[in-house]
């Protein structure tokens, strides 16, 4: 099959890949770009382990063709921390034991991140809804919902600057 050239940004870095047009974004991220954070746990849109941010929207990357990402901005779990600093969501997932095996975590984090971008102050029902497509077999979801709620509260705090 003829390969096509794609260019898009992943975690704020410009990427060029040449790939067959039938490949999914998940497979290109994992196999070509070696970003193994997003997982494949079903390959057909049922579990959310592969969720990444595509132009600000949380998508199941196993259902998105790589060509659909042409010219887009993709954020994966690897892009949440900046300059070695964990994002507050990541910090709260750790502190609140919002995972056990961690296989669902990449998708959970990105779905939660997308929620907080849209709705900085979600209530628990809204959090439940945002992660309803992300299956977790280990936790009872409570720890995850709390971690997201806690992050929202943390981010609402006025940032203290050195002058204040």
């Amino acid at each position: 099959m003829a390969e096509i050239n794609l260019s898009f940004s992943v975690n704020d870095q410009k990427m060029e890949v040449s790939t067959e047009p039938t490949r999914t974004l998940l497979s290109v991220l994992r196999d070509d770009l070696k970003l193994k954070g997003a997982k494949e746990a079903c390959g057909q849109g049922d579990c959310g382990a592969c969720v990444v941010l595509l132009d600000g929207e949380a998508v199941n990357s196993c259902l998105v063709l790589a060509v659909q990402a042409e010219g887009s901005q993709v954020i994966t779990v690897e892009g949440l921390a900046s300059k070695g600093q964990l994002h507050p969501l990541q910090q709260n997932f750790i502190e609140n034991w919002a995972f056990q095996c961690g296989y669902c975590t990449a998708g959970m984090l990105i779905s939660s991140y997308a929620l907080l971008m849209d709705n900085p102050n979600p209530n628990p029902e809204e959090i439940r809804a945002a992660i309803a497509g992300n299956l977790c077999r280990c936790t009872g979801y409570h720890e995850i919902i709390e971690a997201v709620g806690k992050t929202a509260a943390d981010l609402q705090q006025p940032v203290l600057t050195s002058e204040s």
Binding site: G37, E78, L80, Q90, W97, G102, A106
Partner: peptide, 10 residues
């Protein structure tokens, strides 16, 4: 948890 830093960063 042991390994949690690695998990949340993918």
């Amino acid at each position: 948890a042991v390994g949690s830093q690695a998990i949340v960063t993918g």
